[in-house]
Each structure stands twice: as C-alpha cells, then as structure tokens.
C-alpha cells in the first residue's frame, strides 16, 4: 500500500495542476461576479458604482434576452436531434460488414477536425452563397430560385453547419458503444424471429442508452457556447443571436461589462446544470 511518504509526494505532484486550475476558475469567476454587481462601462465613465442585482434584472428584461434564449434552444435542440438520430443510424451502418470500412470511417469523421472558422466560411461562401455557392447552382439546375440561406433561413443554416461539425463526434462515440454490444445476443434474437425493428428497439437502443446520454450532455455543453460559426456567418443578425453571442456583444462590442457579466453568470449557471448530470455519470464510471 501507499506509504505516508508517497502520499505527501503525491499531494506535491498534484499541486501545480490543482493550483493552476483553481486560479483559472476562481479569479475570473470572482471578477465576473464582482462586475455583475456594478454599473461598469469602460468606455463611458468606467466604474459607476454598485447597483446590486440591477444588471441581472435588466439582462433578463431586455428585449433581446428571450429571443436569444429561444435561438439558443432551437440551435442546441436542432443540432442534438440531427446528430443523435443520424449518429445512431451511422453507427449502426458503420458497424455492418462492408468493403473499405476504414476509409468510410475517415470520411465520416473528417468534419470534426476542420477548424470552426474554416467550416463556417466554406459553408457560407462555397456552398450557401446565393450567387456562386454550390447549392445555388443545384437549385438553378432544378429550375428553382436560389435561396439566400443565411438571411432567409439563418437558424436552419447554422444548425446545418454545426450539425455537420458534430455528427462525427456522435457517430464515433455511438460506434464505439455499438462495438461493445454482444453480437451473440443479436443473433439469438434473430434466431428467435425478432424483427429488425424489435432487435433495434429492445437490444440495440437500450445498449446505446448511456452513450446517447453522454453524447447529449457533452454536446450540449459545447453547443451552448458555439461562437465562431455565428461570428463568421451572420454576426448574430437575422435572429441568430444566441445567449453566448449576446453576452459577447454586451461585453466586447457595446462594452457594457456589468450587464454582460450578469449574462455570463446566467450562462455559467445554465452550463453547470447540464454539467451536473454529466458528472454524475462520469463519477459513477470512475467507481466501476
């Protein structure tokens, strides 16, 4: 067993990482809380004193708050729906015997490694541009009028771009989970005459349950803070201002730090609610 000596050595070895993360968490968090209680306009008078919870009230009562919550929910929900449904389908498909499985896997996973600014820009200009984009050519080919994707269907467009980026993640995790499924169980069910749908519903889906939960939780945390995709495409116009983007605008664009910080605290609380569920699963796995 570990001796007293190795215990204190272990504590010492953990110290730098723990210290750095503690500072990284506590200092900015304390500052955000501090600013959120102040009227603080760096370019228009600086620190104008304590205002209590005024910023929190003003942030949620401002006319842009609820639309931004709605946009956030639609984008996160839309992307989750698309990536989980297609991810399950792709995981099932890629788990089947086929020729060139390794290459198909690489093709499917590739989008995840494309940096967000590149994927946003490629989709915006080369695919969705109403004049020169490939979609416009395709629409014209079928005799349809080209769509101005980012102004006529802005939220759909962003959901599409972000789903493209995250589908590989969902697929990869669900595929990994798929591969731990006992194939004998499936064969036995097939032998007993269970239909493909019954096998999917009673064996595959329950087996994937935890992986799906994890995909949803991890993606939610990352999707709540998508930024580059909106920054590059619409800059928050056409109703694509998410909560994250609204806070960014309050803080850096209009330099209303107090108000933006209050928004930041809301964002932190929201992310923590999701994180709590994720941690419970991860924590349970640690014990096992």
């Amino acid at each position: 067993m570990a001796t007293e000596h190795s215990r204190s050595a272990a504590r010492l070895m953990m110290a730098p990482a723990v210290f750095l993360l503690l500072v990284w968490m506590l200092v900015p968090l304390t500052m955000t809380l501090y600013f959120s209680l102040k009227r603080y306009l760096p370019l228009r008078g600086g620190d104008l004193g304590w205002v209590g919870l005024d910023n929190y009230v003003r942030f949620v009562t401002s006319s842009s708050f609820w639309p931004s919550v709605q946009t956030t929910l639609i984008i996160v929900g839309g992307v989750l729906l698309i990536t989980v449904v297609l991810g399950v389908f792709l995981a099932l498909l890629l788990d089947q015997p086929m020729w060139g499985q390794g290459i198909v896997r690489i093709l499917v996973i590739a989008p995840f490694f494309v940096m967000p600014t590149v994927s946003a820009l490629v989709w915006k200009n080369m695919l969705m541009d109403p004049v020169n984009g490939l979609f416009a050519h395709l629409w014209k080919f079928f005799g349809l009028a080209p769509v101005e994707w980012l102004s006529q269907a802005p939220i759909f467009s962003i959901v599409l771009i972000v789903s493209w980026q995250w589908l590989p993640f969902a697929t990869l995790i669900l595929l990994t989970a798929m591969q731990s499924l006992d194939s004998e169980q499936l064969e036995a069910a097939e032998m007993d005459g269970a239909s493909p749908f019954a096998r999917f519903g009673h064996i595959v889906l329950p087996h994937l349950g935890q992986a799906i939960t994890i995909v949803i939780l991890i993606q939610t945390i990352f999707l709540l803070s998508i930024f580059a995709e909106i920054f590059v495409t619409t800059q928050g116009s056409f109703g694509t201002r998410t909560l994250t983007y609204l806070i960014f605008q309050r803080v850096l664009e209009s330099q209303n730090v107090g108000l933006g910080s209050a928004g930041g605290v809301y964002a932190i609380i929201l992310a923590n609610i999701v994180a709590l569920f994720l941690m419970r699963i991860v924590g349970k796995n640690l014990d096992a």
Binding site: M14, A17, V18, L21, W24, M25, V27, P28, L29, M31, T32, F35, I221, L224, S225, F227, T244, I247, F248, V251, L252, V257, G260, S261, G264, V265, A267, I268, L270, A271, N272, V274, A275, L278, M279, V282, G283, L286, D287
Partner: peptide
C-alpha cells in the same frame, strides 16, 4: 475522485462567462 470531477467541472465553465475578466487581465 472529487478532484478529478472538479477538474472536469472547470472545463464546463462557459468561456463567454469569463470573457471580460480574462480580457482585462
């Protein structure tokens, strides 16, 4: 286990929530 989970929780902190403090620092 608590330390590991706590470390994980710092990863969950939304960047935009601490944007201005980091900017200021």
């Amino acid at each position: 286990k608590d330390v590991l989970l706590w470390m994980l929780s710092t990863k969950m902190l939304p960047a935009v929530g601490v944007l201005y403090p980091i900017y200021l620092i």
